[in-house]
């Protein structure tokens, strides 16, 4: 089973981006070395659609960021976006557009003002598989890890209740 392991500081930056753009959807990438499955470089992207219900990378920024990753031997380990009024679960639209079978699709819901729901999925050939998110507290102790084990059913798990 796949797991997304991601540094606390990156999750915090993604949540801050999602909060900043709320009520519009926010989107971005976390790049990491090719083949490492380790997200290391957070790249917030513009939502060219500037919409509460849709996101799309700006085509020129997309090209620039993908080239930069290529030059650095990186790949998009995480592709994230926010849902601002619904749960953090891929919509039919998300599934239809998912074009990076190797990526972790991270969704953040900002519908609650005081807590975020953060969930991760693989989307391959139209099939959605949820995976646990392990948030690594690198700043404190690289070996200290909190696991957020989400079930395969789309039951809502409150991020704030998991010991943050």
């Amino acid at each position: 089973m796949h797991v997304l392991s991601i540094d606390r500081s990156i999750i915090d930056a993604i949540v801050a981006h999602a909060r900043r753009d709320h009520p519009d959807e926010a989107c971005g990438v976390v790049a990491g070395p090719v083949g490492s499955d380790t997200p290391t470089r957070h790249i917030p992207m513009d939502n060219a659609a500037r919409s509460m219900t849709f996101y799309e990378f700006d085509s020129m920024e997309h090209l620039r960021v993908w080239r930069e990753m290529d030059d650095r031997d990186e790949e998009p380990v995480v592709i994230y976006h926010s849902h601002t009024a619904t749960e953090a679960y891929p919509s039919r639209t998300d599934v239809s557009f998912a074009g990076e079978p190797g990526a972790h699709y991270l969704l953040v819901s900002t519908r609650e003002p005081d807590s975020e729901e953060i969930r991760s999925f693989r989307i391959v050939d139209g099939v959605v598989t949820e995976e646990p998110v392990r948030i690594v507290e690198a700043a404190v102790d690289p070996h200290a890890v909190q696991s957020y084990m989400f079930g395969q059913s789309p039951a809502t798990v409150d991020y704030e209740c998991s010991g943050r």
Binding site: F54, F57, S59, H62, H81, T84, A85, T93, S96, F97
Partner: peptide, 11 residues
């Protein structure tokens, strides 16, 4: 590059 797009509602 396939567009990176999606969103909450399948409007």
């Amino acid at each position: 590059l396939p567009a990176v797009a999606g969103g909450a509602f399948g409007f």
